[in-house]
Write a protein that binds this DNA or RNA. Structure first.
Lengths: 225, 225
DNA sequence: CCCTTACGCTACGAGTCGTAGCGTAACTCA
DNA sequence: TGAGTTACGCTACGACTCGTAGCGTAAGGG
């Protein structure tokens, strides 16, 4: 599997890779996870079924790669001027990503399988989760430089906090879409961002902080309301 | 389907129901979702495969009922004295529920299918989600009576807030367990509760994180901070 | 030119699905 | 008590998907 081991012989077709991943996404949209068969994907991609099995050991790994490609296209941690705006943008971006019929569904199904498959869980983590989690670290670092968050002395506690916040953001968005089956619209994104920044007690009080009693520390960006 | 239509004839065996649902949970633990077959469940339960198909139209609906039974056994909204303690208890309870090998996995898989099946989504909602969501409403009402939360004038906004908080609690716990694959231990439950109540700005600043150099022990009596 | 690897194609056994058919068991009502 | 109704167990079945093996061919490297 090392690159040196592939120096010789016919190289794998990169175009076939793109066709297969694209066909996988198309099949996911049309059929959903359960009815998705590798034979169907191969037919859509215009390749032989055996070619699929030579590259991916299972349906799960194929779908992980197919979904990861979509996630990679939309990875951005642009600076929106404030912690509030950064979080809100991340929520909307993640919502738009998971609202796609091929991403959320597939992710849930793969995660379900990953419970019984350690290697699959690692693949999901490195291909999707960790890259998203990096955005949390970047955003928090930026907020610290702005003075919106206190400095973290303990790096271990800092990492724990980043994990917690990532679970909160990604988990809540995912739950909103997959369980509650409600859209991630701008109003919800703002309400959720308020909850994350100011907590239940603060955010609930002033009707989305519009007439809020001015929570200390962070000030609202001009964008909202 | 109405009860009056079942007045006559041989009644369905309630014991068979219990055996089937129990066998489904056992099979989920052993085999996981993907390898779970209805034939296997029937064999474990000691019933004929046809009996299964007479009662449940699909594997999904069977699993929903099997998982819902577990959830129902652990529905409790006990008063723990404060909003913080109530939330923390709910987080731990939900975590313990989803940490079971038969619940989290199955729930994820069923939700993935529910994307393409409206009736299945309704079944999940009424059998599991709505009952859990009621606990949020109860807890918030109690907190309001304690004076920990302001009164909600607008009932529509109140319902929106309850939905948001439920998505946040359930989604974050689910994400922690299924995606991050980390346990819902007491320390994490406390950190998350702090985040929910006081927000990123508040919880990060004051919590135990900054206080102790390395509070590895993690045995922290309830109600501190 | 030989070696190596990838590809397309076909065919196959194994396994699951969901249903049909039949005889029997359990319960209700007249 | 007997007739009607529904549930159950069992067997068998066609249809489908899976994952692999075998073969000949295409595409690069030493």
């Amino acid at each position: 599997m090392s690159p040196s081991a592939r120096r010789t012989g016919r190289p794998r077709s990169a175009e076939a890779d793109r066709a297969i991943l694209g066909a996988t996404r198309a099949a996911l949209v049309e059929l959903g996870w359960a009815k998705l068969t590798l034979g169907d994907v191969a037919a859509r991609a215009g390749v032989a079924k055996t070619t699929l099995y030579r590259r991916w050991a299972s349906k799960c790994e194929l779908v992980v790669d197919a979904v990861a490609a979509v996630f990679d296209e939309h990875l951005e941690a642009g600076d929106h001027g404030s912690l509030h705006a950064d979080v809100e943008a991340a929520v909307i971006r993640l919502g738009a990503l998971l609202e796609r019929p091929e991403t959320g569904t597939a992710l849930m199904a793969v995660l379900a399988e990953a419970t019984h498959d350690e290697s699959l869980r690692c693949r999901v983590r490195s291909a999707i989760v960790d890259r998203q989690k990096r955005l949390v670290t970047i955003g928090r670092e930026r907020a610290r430089l702005r003075g919106e968050l206190p400095r973290e002395e303990d790096p271990e506690a800092s990492a724990r906090n980043a994990d917690l916040i990532f679970d909160a953001v990604a988990g809540t968005v995912l739950h909103r879409l997959m369980v509650s089956a409600e859209p991630v619209d701008p109003r919800w994104a703002r309400d959720f961002t308020d909850l994350l920044l100011y907590g239940m007690t603060g955010a609930d009080a002033g009707g989305a902080a519009a007439a809020g009693p001015a929570p200390d520390g962070a000030q609202k960006p001009a964008g909202s309301v």
